[in-house]
Design a protein around this nucleic acid. Structure first.
Lengths: 172, 172
DNA sequence: AAGGGGTAATTGGTCTGACCAATGCCGCCG
DNA sequence: CGGCGGCATTGGTCAGACCAATTACCCCTT
């Protein structure tokens, strides 16, 4: 049954299950730190250690003086966290551009209606965003968005020139 | 350019940069909570809130009475943790498998020497790993590896059947 | 000198209590 | 009826204390 897990992880699970059992939905305010401490029979610092982690993961949001609120699943940050660790390593900038091209290429291969892209030929970013949106895969889109954000943070220009974009559409 | 960021995230960043600047490598023991508190001029509870989050993500490991140690970044621990939060919601599992197929498809399109894959037809995982390795893009490979670890943590079977793998190679 | 054992110092784990700061509620006053 | 000001609530941070587990170190024995 229960292994000798850290009390810390137990507290996170306890808070998480309490949230589920009480039927909170995104946007709701969860009980205060002091109330959670009392109901779980642990101290407020322990509650805070758990809540801070949940906040860092984007599960909840805390407002000074206001309380803690459940966030939408879309606001969750763990994808960004993963991406943060992926890029902090020895990854090079060329890898960033190359990965973007790979991701967008796979979206392009699946694309059936290329005319959809013709409305976004003027902007490199708009073209690529439109391309990714056609995949209709939330995880894939978030990964692309994160990689692209890192790419843009390097202040480089367009990933493709207009000529390249047009050539893509003409190619069989 | 001052944003009113939470002191909490600032503390996490401060600890992370301190770890990097001091040149710690995985396995090393990082300074004690009390020493970190003193060097960062914050209280020990604040240090703990940051350390607990880092430990939860699998970046460090803490041993009661021993200290805190830097972990290898390639550990999948935080993947499991994060998966725990994903499973509870609407099933995004299809997104996982779909993303993997997209990533591998883009690698396949770039592939020139398909015979390289023929040596790995017996295992779904070996086939896919070999496929990704041909891209020779570190960031892309790490992204795939994390998504795949995520996929495997759900305990599903093969992504492709053997028949599918063979069909890929035959297709023009 | 080498090894072992036991004690002290170090370090993480948890709690109590306190005070500050931001927010929100509610009643009072115009 | 509406604006406004004070008070209660809630998160943010800190200091200090004590316990538990581990580690370091010194001394004694061999």
């Amino acid at each position: 049954m229960e292994k000798k897990r850290n009390a810390f992880e137990t507290n996170i699970s306890a808070i998480k299950t309490m949230i589920e059992q009480d039927g909170f939905v995104p946007g709701d305010r969860i009980p205060s730190e002091r109330e959670l401490a009392e109901r779980l029979a642990i101290s407020r610092p322990s509650v805070r250690e758990a809540l801070r982690t949940l906040a860092y993961l984007g599960i909840i949001e805390t407002r000074h003086g206001g309380g803690s609120f459940l966030l939408n699943r879309d606001d969750h940050t763990y994808i960004q966290i993963i991406a943060q660790f992926l890029v902090t390593g020895d990854s090079k900038f060329e890898d960033l551009a190359g990965t973007l091209r790979l991701l967008e290429q796979s979206a392009f291969v699946k694309l059936t209606d290329r005319s959809f892209l013709e409305a976004h030929m003027d902007s490199d970013l708009a073209y690529r965003e439109a391309l990714i949106s056609t995949v209709d895969n939330d995880l894939f889109e978030r990964i692309w968005r994160q990689v692209n954000a890192f790419y843009l943070s390097f202040g480089q220009g367009e990933l493709y020139t207009r000529a390249e974009r047009e050539a893509f559409l003409k190619r069989s």
